[in-house]
Design a protein around this nucleic acid. Structure first.
Lengths: 111, 111
DNA sequence: TGATTATATTTAAATATATTCATATGTCAA
DNA sequence: TTGACATATGAATATATTTAAATATAATCA
């Protein structure tokens, strides 16, 4: 079976497509970071965070390095952040369209 | 439960994260298109393609319009294509890193 | 060495997703 | 109005993902 680029793209997108993993990457935007800082940031259980880090690692989105007792993670390719910015833009456009639709319909009951 | 942007982002990414849906969007990059053209392009079964179109529709990534007997689809927000370009870039960077690693290790057995 | 800390892995249950098949809906043309 | 075509929907099944709990590993410290 000949591989196609869409499969690779889908693999990257799948690895990104989870709220906790997005939150982890948001934390890593500021630079490399130790798991012990990531856990409280994403407010997740240790084993769950570790599992999600593994998913990001397997997709080559992040890499890890042992520093003494700690493990530090960093994003491999900063293009990931540009990608996430585009996703955010899509979400904002979407919500903006909904909002405009609502005002166009002249519905006044918004809180 | 207070919603957070990551959930919305994850929803968009999830909707994109499938080879067939990426292929559909690639077809729609050229402009609005009828389902009857999409099906042969992605080489999928009619009902399966229809299901995937539904997923893209529900995520507000595409919208459909009936034209007589046909249904035409188009991408709602062109930012989606910029997003997909970033994903492609990630994949290419990834493969390039692998390739460079291989040559750095001076492994000659590549076909 | 033994205890402690940081992190990863394994497992099982719950949930979500993809695919297929059968059928339904709507439109056009004879 | 019947039949053919284009597309959507629903149910059933197979498969993958998420989560939490338990356990394992590895580094550090007393």
């Amino acid at each position: 079976m000949k591989p196609n680029i869409q499969e690779f793209q889908a693999a990257v997108l799948n690895a990104l497509a989870h709220p906790m993993r997005l939150k982890i990457l948001e934390k890593l935007r500021a630079g490399p970071c130790c798991v012990c800082k990531i856990i409280p940031y994403v407010k997740g259980e240790q084993s769950n965070v570790s599992h999600h880090l593994q998913i990001l690692r397997r997709a080559n989105i992040v890499r890890s390095e042992k520093r003494g007792q700690e493990v530090w993670y960093e994003v491999v390719d900063p293009v990931i952040f540009e990608l996430l910015d585009k996703v955010r833009l899509c979400v904002i456009h979407n919500l903006t369209r909904s909002h405009r639709l609502l005002t166009t319909l002249n519905i006044k009951e918004m809180k």
